[in-house]
Design a protein around this nucleic acid. Sequence first.
DNA 1: ATCATAAATGCGAATTATTCGCAATTAGAA
DNA 2: TTCTAATTGCGAATAATTCGCATTTATGAT
Lengths: 134, 134
Amino acid sequence: MKKATPGELLRQHGLKVTSTRKDVLDALIMARKPIAAEALQDALGKNADIATIYRTLQTLVSKGLVYQTNFRDRKAHYEYQEKHHHHVVCTECGTREETKLCIDAKKLARTFTNFRTLDSHVLEFFGVCNKCTT
Amino acid sequence: MKKATPGELLRQHGLKVTSTRKDVLDALIMARKPIAAEALQDALGKNADIATIYRTLQTLVSKGLVYQTNFRDRKAHYEYQEKHHHHVVCTECGTREETKLCIDAKKLARTFTNFRTLDSHVLEFFGVCNKCTT
DNA sequence: ATCATAAATGCGAATTATTCGCAATTAGAA
DNA sequence: TTCTAATTGCGAATAATTCGCATTTATGAT
């Protein structure tokens, strides 16, 4: 199957298709990495209002289309979630890399929590990258 | 072995023992749950400056004495890390509960990342609690 | 114990990320 | 096409966190 367009993705998730939403989602897909709201605005060439961007991001996160995380740098980062994954952050230089390292939360939810189901999780690793270690 | 006092903990981690640091660490130990900087100041009876509290928290986090996380509510939460654990957050009512559900990052680091070692990780689960589900 | 010094603190002000209120616009159902 | 609820844009407001700098303090050496 070919990849869905931003508009199709929005529709599939029961969202009204507006140009801002398409633009934001498209920029997130292009970025291929976690990106903060302001950087997203830059990517959009200032064509979008920052408050609208924040509202749009909230919406996308609530639908599971976008992964929201934070790297201990006081701002939220957003990433289009094509396939689920997490990151390793270097506490020295801030470099981030993707990792497949993950946890099967859904399967373990009932054993380890009182929640019936878990919708999502945030998982980020911190360490010192090889460049900074030497 | 009996539990170390805040002062001893600080010394063990190579930190200067100051009264603010002892107070902050003590308040965190008493809290027994994640707490934001401002709430910590309240717990301290306003006796400590908020900027100092933030600096102290950074220090404690960098030494691994304190776990810093965020629950998608725009502020950082800090918790004394006596034994390692994480949380499940209800996206409806904000309730948080502890969970033992975790991942053995150190063991898996070399297989899944290019980092030699991982110092810490943030892991938080989001779902809808039983009260809000019904 | 006293001293010297680097580290930690307190204060106020500055930043910066994020949200709010409201009027104007727009997507999608009828 | 029309109607209506949802979305947007704008400006201003909040709230969390950090900064600069003068003052104080903990600790190691004398």
